[in-house]
Computed example of a mutant assay.
Amino acid sequence: MFFTVLERSLSLAQHNFGTLLKTGWAYILLLVALNFAIGGSLMPESGFKTVSYMTEPVAAADEGALRALAAIANLLVGFSIAIAYVRRILIDARDFPVAFGARNIRVILNQIVLTLIGALSLIPLVIVSLLLAAVTAGIGLLLLFLAPFIALMVVQRFSVVLPASAVDDPLTLRESWRATSGFGWAMAFAALVMSLLAGFLVGIWAVVLGVSDGLMPASVLWQQIRSAVFPMGTMLILVWAFASLHATFYGLIRERFAAQLGLRQEDLSKAEAQKEAARERARKALAGAQRMNRR
């Protein structure tokens, strides 16, 4: 199960990178414009010493506050990209290129709740491991080492509410926990690998932009562009990795529900075909009625 979940997540991500760009193109432009404007306002006269304004040392409190607001704005846009991406690959939704509403707020609130669950899971584990370390150093240190992974497993079992909220499925935290029974460690392992992959790709992205200085003519404009596209690319990588991961989780539990109901894949396909046939008959009937009205 460990490798099945990971393989399906990687396969989904690999085959849907184009889908990410198609569904998120408007948000990508928004990210570039947002970061270009903020980076331009924070750019010193001597230019940036690092790849982006986001990676520059904080020189003043107001710069730190503006950078924090920029990070929040990037996250909000990133959530919007993730929602559009998940909706396209799960239910083939074709929403307006830019949208922000109750659905986005639900997903963001669920993410905040998951973050709190992770913290509340990690803190007691760390406390217990430190107490054990005072008595039996080996067991305590082992638990301290495993504590983040255990907390990650807990969070991932609840995390199916994120793609569910994106597709307007009223799945609750309790239902998510029950539905992922037996998947917890595999989900945590897949999340860990996808996190490492995302971190590696972000590092590659930073190196590519850093090397570009030697390929592009030195100019203030290029520094501003480079500064803007780094957080944009970083956000795309994170969305691509984690939205694909959680879409896979959602697909797995829906397959489990279908199996529990005694439905096979053939049954699901047959039901979809029947629905499509009914829609086609309805369209033909409507077209016939319209022709009669014109006569």
Rank of each mutant, 00 (worst) to 15 (best):
P148K: 03
E7K: 13
R264N: 11
F158D: 00
A37N: 06
M235Y: 11
A188F: 03
I83T: 09
L109W: 08
I253Y: 02
I225A: 11
A198H: 07
W25V: 01
D62K: 00
V161H: 04
N104D: 15
A218Y: 11
M1Y: 01
F249C: 06
G203I: 14
L252F: 02
L143D: 06
L215Q: 04
R281K: 14
L125N: 02
V239Q: 02
M187R: 04
T136C: 08
L31T: 05
A191H: 03
E175R: 01
L20D: 09
A37C: 11
I123T: 14
L173W: 07
E56I: 12
L238W: 03
L268M: 04
F79H: 09
S129W: 04
G182S: 11
W240E: 00
L146N: 02
A102Y: 07
M292P: 05
T234I: 01
R88L: 13
R254T: 04
Q111A: 15
I123E: 09
F189P: 00
A228M: 06
T19M: 11
P231Q: 07
S176L: 06
V154L: 10
V77C: 05
R106T: 15
R283M: 05
F249N: 01
V161R: 02
T50Y: 12
K22N: 13
L10D: 07
S244R: 03
F17P: 03
S244Y: 04
G214R: 09
R174N: 06
N35S: 09
M1S: 14
P163F: 01
G262V: 12
R281S: 14
Y27E: 11
G288E: 13
A179N: 04
F158P: 00
K22T: 13
A99L: 12
S129A: 15
V32R: 03
N293K: 11
L116N: 04
A26Y: 08
A99Y: 11
L116S: 08
P44Q: 09
E63N: 06
G40F: 05
I81F: 08
A73F: 12
S269A: 15
D62Y: 10
F200W: 11
V58A: 07
G18W: 09
D62Q: 12
L69E: 05
